[in-house]
Computed example of a mutant assay.
Amino acid sequence: MSTLAQIGASLRQARLAQGLSATQLSERTGLSRVTLRELENGLGNARLSTVLAVCDALDLSLTVAPRAVADLQSGDARQRPTELSALLARTREAGLALRGRRKDAP
């Protein structure tokens, strides 16, 4: 599960990778530098609208995914094919389809 600190660190990494200062990002988003610093440091309780504004300014998307899929993304890349196959097998065994319920499901 992503914590606010992990999200903030990812946003800081994206900002720095784009060569933006906190002041420049503040100007792009209309958010104060204090708010951005708190978000990047995982402090406080950031509003979703704040996170979305920063993502938009950095040309990032915010994606909601099943935990098992998100865990695959953050895990060891060498294990992903095996883990993905196991996840798909469990999904099939449970009678679930990746795009919704099976036609014969109640």
Rank of each mutant, 00 (worst) to 15 (best):
R101I: 05
L72R: 01
L39Y: 02
L58N: 05
Q79S: 05
G75T: 02
Q13P: 01
A22Q: 12
L16T: 15
L52V: 15
R101N: 12
L16F: 09
K103E: 06
R12D: 14
T63K: 12
D56H: 12
S74C: 02
P106M: 04
A89I: 10
S26T: 00
V54A: 09
R33F: 07
L11D: 02
T35R: 10
T82Q: 09
A22K: 13
K103W: 09
L31R: 11
R90C: 13
A68S: 15
E40C: 10
M1W: 11
L60P: 14
A97M: 08
Q73V: 14
L16I: 08
V54W: 04
T35E: 03
T91D: 10
M1T: 13
G100M: 06
A57R: 07
R101Y: 12
A70Y: 06
G100A: 08
S85T: 12
L87K: 14
T35L: 07
R15L: 03
G19E: 00
A9V: 00
G95N: 10
Q18A: 08
A9P: 01
D76W: 12
A57K: 09
A46I: 01
K103S: 10
P81V: 06
R78N: 15
V64I: 15
L36G: 10
A22N: 14
R99V: 11
P81N: 08
G95A: 11
V51K: 10
L4V: 05
L87Q: 04
L84H: 06
S74M: 02
S85G: 15
L43P: 02
A14G: 02
R37Y: 06
E38Y: 06
L16Y: 11
P66M: 04
P81H: 05
G30Y: 03
G44A: 11
G75C: 05
T23Y: 05
S74A: 10
E38C: 01
L20P: 11
A5T: 14
G75N: 03
G75Q: 01
A86N: 09
G19F: 05
S61R: 04
L98H: 13
D104G: 14
E40N: 11
R12P: 11
A53T: 14
L87T: 11
A89M: 12
L31C: 04
Q18I: 00
L48D: 15
E38A: 09
E40G: 06
G95V: 01
L88Q: 09
Q18V: 00
A57C: 04
L87C: 11
V64L: 15
L87A: 11
T63H: 12
R12H: 10
R99C: 13
A17R: 11
L25M: 05
A17G: 09
G95D: 07
A53C: 15
L87F: 12
R33N: 15
A86F: 08
S85F: 12
L87Y: 09
A105S: 15
L88C: 06
L84T: 04
A53K: 13
E93H: 03
S10Y: 00
L52G: 08
L48T: 15
T91F: 13
T50N: 02
R101Q: 14
N45C: 07
T82E: 10
G75M: 01
L52W: 04
L11P: 00
R12W: 03
L72C: 01
